[in-house]
Nucleic acid binder design. Structure first.
Lengths: 134, 134
DNA sequence: AAGACGATAACGTGGCGTCAGGGTGG
DNA sequence: CCCACCCTGACGCCACGTTATCGTCT
């Protein structure tokens, strides 16, 4: 409400998430909004954490993995080990993404071939094929 | 049990899935094993379908989407209109795959950049970086 | 008094994992 | 009689969505 904290609605608008999601993240100890009466007020720290949560999610990390990563960042001591651990996880994730992309290329080829075959069953579908496949 | 059909255990071994998964797919009408008493017997058609199910899953399609795709493949014998409909859906799927691949490509770049940035925080992680990113 | 915004509680969903308890065939 | 393998429930998990019902502020 002050310019240091945000209401749940402001958070939703700012980060394009639902209130349910923010409450869920609090329940899972990923966020720690302070309370003004019953109402949650999200701090700068919560916003920083949420940014990392959403990024982590896009990379396919589970919330539990993200919670661990966040805790690592919070821990002041031993930054070297923390970063190395983070790094190891990121490398794993990257390799997964690359494998997925490669498999996806394969399936795209498969489906294109199937469509080429299917198009021979028709006489008039060349146009839509070209539209779809460039 | 004959050389045309397989027991659930044989299916598990052949496709590296659990029995629970196969029963679940039957419940969701993705597979249609015949029965010998209580026991399920999976046909050649089931095996072909399962291959496609597993392929689709790796690319992040929902089982419901996969069910629709399978129905498309079943419709090969269809008439002109059905084939056009099939074709339209196949084009949609192909576009989905391409978008998915492009998004993955973005994520990979994004994660690589993150790791490059992170590596500057360290002094000694160049080796693992090169291992991961080539 | 109405309407916007907040809260909690609790059930639904997808894709199975994981028991529990009970056949059935060799 | 045992064991391996099969079956059908039915509850558990994750990451929320979706009501339902209520309180609070303006």
């Amino acid at each position: 409400m002050t310019d240091q904290t945000m209401t749940i609605r402001q958070m939703c608008d700012a980060f394009k998430v639902t209130a349910r999601t923010l409450r869920f993240y609090e329940a899972k100890e990923l966020l720690f909004p302070i309370r003004e009466g019953q109402k949650r007020l999200f701090t700068k720290r919560d916003r920083a954490r949420l940014k990392l949560i959403l990024k982590g999610k896009r990379f396919g990390f589970s919330l539990e993995e993200i919670r661990q990563l966040l805790n690592l960042y919070d821990d002041d001591s031993g930054k070297f080990n923390q970063l190395n651990e983070t790094y190891r996880m990121a490398i794993d994730r990257l390799e997964q993404l690359i494998r997925r992309r490669d498999e996806l290329e394969e399936l795209i080829e498969d489906l294109r071939n199937h469509m080429d075959w299917a198009s021979e069953q028709l006489n008039d579908s060349q146009t839509s094929l070209k539209v779809a496949c460039g």
